[in-house]
């Protein structure tokens, strides 16, 4: 049984990001892999050690502050689970939260959880639009696409990016990187949501989660015609395929 842990679904629920949970769960069920979803709300206890896939979405500024305070009390547990290979998908605000801090336009530094080595700086211009990236996993280069919408610009320290920007802004619109990757943690600015149409990535996350439990079963392919079509339309429109 895989346990999907959806953090703060009531608060971090911008831009249809719950589609990531829907995609992960459906692709398990279509393959007969038992899966359950646990929703963790403000103040509720979390056992990170029991989780197989953790999802952190983005929220508005006010909600972001509420949950950072709540998560701060569990930072050590989360960091341990991440070292242990917990599969995490963190999008937008959830991504920024895992870094050192978020510096606002007036220079105030709002501390993050400091689990991963990057920081975010508020920009004067919001980075909005369709985005295509190239990422590498399991020895293959693949393309993914989505929609980004962030005013924070993230700069990576000693940590790998998730991918390279083909079209769009990515982390900060300057260095050509998108997202961050550490062990089994995947951080990204891509809404859309990310997982439904980028099903190759979803299956990779699923495989990592199973492997971590010592489950080396063969993951059978699914008919991904709908997924590929949805992806291809956007990649073509952006002129990258």
């Amino acid at each position: 049984m895989l346990t999907v842990c959806h953090l703060y679904p009531d608060l971090l629920n911008l831009y249809g990001d719950r589609g990531n949970i829907i995609a992960f769960v459906k692709r398990c069920r279509w393959r007969g892999i038992p899966v359950q979803v646990e929703e963790i709300n403000l103040g509720e206890s979390i056992d990170f050690a029991r989780a197989d896939f953790l999802f952190l979405g983005g929220g508005s500024d006010r909600e972001q502050e509420l949950i950072t305070a709540d998560l701060r009390t569990r930072t050590a547990d989360l960091a341990d689970a991440i070292e242990d290979g917990l599969v995490v998908l963190a999008i937008c605000g959830g991504y920024q939260l895992l870094g050192h801090y978020y510096r606002t336009l007036d220079g105030t530094e709002i501390p993050g959880l400091g689990i991963l080595d990057f920081y975010t700086q508020a920009g004067s211009k919001r980075l909005i639009g369709n985005i295509a990236i190239e990422l590498e996993f399991g020895g293959h280069k693949v393309q993914a696409c989505g929609f980004e919408n962030h005013s924070g610009q993230t700069f990576l320290g000693n940590i790998k990016p998730l991918g390279r920007v083909l079209k769009g802004y990515g982390n900060n619109g300057r260095d050509g990187f998108e997202g961050a990757r550490y062990k089994n943690v995947f951080c990204s600015y891509l809404h859309g949501p990310l997982l439904p149409k980028n099903s190759h990535l979803t299956d990779y996350l699923l495989r990592l989660a199973l492997n971590r439990r010592g489950d080396k079963r063969f993951i059978k392919g699914l008919d991904d015609t709908f997924e590929k079509n949805a992806r291809r339309v956007m990649l073509r429109r952006m002129g990258v395929k």
């Binding site: 629920n13 831009y15 990001d17 719950r18 929609f147």
Partner: peptide, 9 residues
């Protein structure tokens, strides 16, 4: 709205 992700909500 150029972002259609809301259909997932």
């Amino acid at each position: 709205g150029r972002d259609i992700s809301w259909i997932w909500d």
